[in-house]
Design a protein around this nucleic acid. Structure first.
Lengths: 228, 228
DNA sequence: CATTATGTACAAACCAGTTCGTTATAATGG
DNA sequence: CCATTATAACGAACTGGTTTGTACATAATG
C-alpha cells in the first residue's frame, strides 16, 4: 500500500522504482569489473577504466567493494556462481550410464566453451596461486555438487557392468575438466603454434568428439568397448 | 694472442675474462626477468624489482631489451627454447610403439611438472591472447619437432596393429598437452576447491598413471586393450 | 677518438585510494 | 503533517606513491 503519491516512490510490481538503485549499481559495477578483470587480469585491470565504463563512478566502486582486491574477489565469486548455476541445469537422471557420461562431458565441453571469461578468471586466479579463492567462503561450497553428479553416474555404470570399478569421481572430474578447460585456456597459443584455428566450428566439433571418446574409453570396461 | 699484458684482459681458456661481460649481463637480466614475469605476469612484474635483483641496473635492461615488452618477449622465447631443448633429450626409437607412447606421455607429464615457470609463462601468454608469441619468429619453429616424434610413434603403432588408425598426431599432441598442462596450471584452484594437495607425491603418481592410461586407451585398438 | 657498456638522478605519466561536498531517502520528534 | 536529523547514494577533484622510461655523465675498449 503506497502511502505517498510521489512518482518517485511508485511501485512497479512490489519493488520500489527508486531513482537510487543500489542493487542495480552494484550489479552494474560487478559486471563491468568482471569483464575487465577477465580481460586484463588483476594487475592489468584499471579501476579508472572500470569506473568509466560503469553507469556509476569510482567513488561507488570503493563505496561498495572497499578496494581493488575486494572488487576482484567479488568478480571471482560472481564468475563461479554464474557458471555453477548454469551447470545445475544438466539433468542426466533418466539416461543409461554411458549416455549420461557422454552428455556430461559434452555439456562440460560446451559450457566451458561458452564461458570463456570464467575460464580466464580461473587462469588468472591460478596465476595468483589461488590466494583469493582461498579467502572466499562462498566458492568452495559451489563445487561439491559437480562431484555428486559424476559420482552417481559412475556408480550406476559400475553396477550395471559398463564401467570398470576402482576409479575416483574427483579424479574423473579432473580428467574431464583438464580436457575441456585446456580447450579454452590454451587455444590462443596452440592455434598460433600449429597454425590452425582451433576456435573454428569444425575444429571444435572434432575436439569435442575426441574428448568424449577419450573419457568414455577411459571409464568403460575394455570388453564393452570391443563389443560395441 | 694476447697483445697486452693487462690482468684484466687475461684469457682463462680461450674466452676473454673481461670486467665488462655483455653476454653474461644479458643472460643474468633475462634469467631474473623470466622469474619475475613467470611469477607476476606482464603487468604485474616490475622493472625496478627486476633491476634490483640483477647484477646490473635498470639502465642496462633498456639498453639490451628496449622496453618492458621487449624484455617480456625475450623471456617468453627463452622459456620455450629451454623447454624444447629439454624435450629433445627424449629418445623412443628403440621401443615398441605402446612403450614408446607410454614413455612420451610420462616424459611430458614429468617435464611439465618440473618446468612450472614455463607453464606459467604460457598461461600468461594465453591471457594476452598469444599476442607476443605472434610477434616471435623464433618460437613457432621450435614446436614442429614435438609433432614429428608423436607422428612416428603413432604410425609405427598403426602399422604393427597396436593403434587404431585415423587419428591426427597434432590432435594427439593436444590431448597429451591438455592433461599434462592442466596438472600444473590448475593445481592451485583444484587443490583448494577439493581440499586435496594435488602437488603431493602420491597425488602426482596417481594422476600420472591415469594420464598415461587415458592416452593409451584412447589410441590403442579396443581388442588389444581387452587382450591385455 | 669513436664506440660500447654502465651508473645516477630525474621526469612524466599513471593509478589506487581519499577528501569533501551534494542530493536523496528514512527516521524521529513535535 | 511538517521540520529536523541521520544515513545512504553519488560526483569531481585531488593526493601521494609508484612505475616506466630518459637525460646526462662516466668508464672501458679498440
Amino acid at each position: 500500500m503506497a502511502t505517498r503519491d510521489d512518482a518517485r516512490r511508485r511501485k512497479a510490481d512490489g519493488a520500489p522504482t527508486r531513482q537510487q538503485d543500489p542493487e542495480g549499481t552494484r550489479r552494474n559495477i560487478l559486471e563491468i569489473a568482471s569483464e575487465e578483470f577477465a580481460l586484463n587480469g588483476l594487475s592489468g585491470a584499471r579501476i579508472d577504466e572500470i569506473a568509466a565504463r560503469t553507469r556509476s563512478s569510482k567513488r561507488m566502486i570503493y563505496y561498495y567493494f572497499g578496494d581493488k582486491e575486494g572488487l576482484y574477489l567479488a568478480a571471482l565469486e560472481n564468475a563461479y556462481r554464474l557458471v555453477r548455476e548454469g551447470e545445475a541445469e544438466l539433468d542426466t537422471d533418466g539416461l543409461p550410464p554411458v549416455e549420461a557420461l557422454r552428455r556430461l562431458v559434452e555439456f562440460t565441453f560446451d559450457h566451458h566453451h561458452q564461458h570463456e571469461s570464467f575460464i580466464r578468471m580461473v587462469m588468472i586466479e591460478n596465476i595468483h596461486h589461488a590466494d583469493y579463492l582461498d579467502r572466499s567462503e562462498v566458492i568452495r561450497q559451489l563445487n561439491v555438487t559437480a562431484i555428486d553428479n559424476i559420482a552417481s553416474i559412475y556408480s550406476r555404470g559400475v553396477a550395471e557392468g559398463w564401467f570398470r570399478p576402482g576409479l575416483d569421481p574427483v579424479d574423473l572430474h579432473w580428467q574431464i575438466s583438464a580436457l575441456c578447460f585446456f580447450n579454452v585456456s590454451n587455444r590462443a597459443t596452440f592455434s598460433r603454434i600449429f597454425d590452425r584455428d582451433l576456435g573454428s566450428l569444425e575444429a571444435q566439433a572434432t575436439l569435442r568428439g575426441q574428448v568424449v571418446d577419450m573419457v568414455l574409453r577411459f571409464v568403460m570396461r575394455a570388453d564393452r568397448l570391443a563389443a560395441e
